[in-house]
Amino acid sequence: MSSISCRNLCRTFHQGDEVITGLDHVDLDIEEGEFVCLSGPSGSGKTTLLNAMGGLDTPDEGEITVGKYRVDKLSKNELAEMRLHDIGFVFQAYNLIPVLSAIENVEFVMQVQGIAAADRGARARAILAEVGLQGLEDRRPGDMSGGQQQRVAVARAIVNQPALVLADEPTANLDTRSAAQFMDLFVALNRQHGITFVISTHDTRVMAYARRLIRMRDGRIVADEQQEPHGMAV
């Protein structure tokens, strides 16, 4: 499901009279199980491309296929269904629900998926333990560090066992140690579960984890290279 195909993707935004190019005829293929970083300066189109892949935004032109889905052809509800069952999102700002505890944030997604109440608690605990948050299940986001909150966000993203995780600047708000731990977690999930990761970043230390690095500028892909991942020096 995670093989991604983008063909001739175009997306423009209007800011007053000014037309801003988000994506400019982008062609891209990502295979199942890849660990990909999209890099580039702000405004280069990384987030726009991620949003288009996740069905959060609709391109003006072009085709996107994510696994069995023709994303650009889906209705609002079909897109929601795809995101719920097949894609996990991790955001720069964590975006946890502040009034729910860590375990409830994870359970909430499972409830929306229709998983029986009896299974939810155990699965949520297991996934939180996997991301290193054992013992912090009942803490609310406000009582957790940025790194811990981001781990909850990852737990929430992978609890539905998606084939694809889209992460938008996931380490931007983390210190170096937390960012390194966090990226190690991503790599482990990629290796153990075969989850495809597409991460947007302009942090070179994050790029060091990628096996494939795609560089963007002004809405275009300017470089697409394979590399030997070497992690982050902490």
């Binding site: 996740g54 959060l56 609002k76 509800n77 929601a80 269904e81 795809m82 995101r83 719920l84 069952h85 894609i87 999102f89 955001f91 975006n95 629900i97 502040p98 997604v109 929306v112 998926q113 929430r156």
Partner: peptide, 16 residues
């Protein structure tokens, strides 16, 4: 609004 946006991106439908 922002929180609802996150919920939508997680796969909740507007009806939910």
């Amino acid at each position: 609004t922002r929180e609802f946006g996150v919920m939508l991106s997680l796969g909740m439908r507007p009806g939910q």
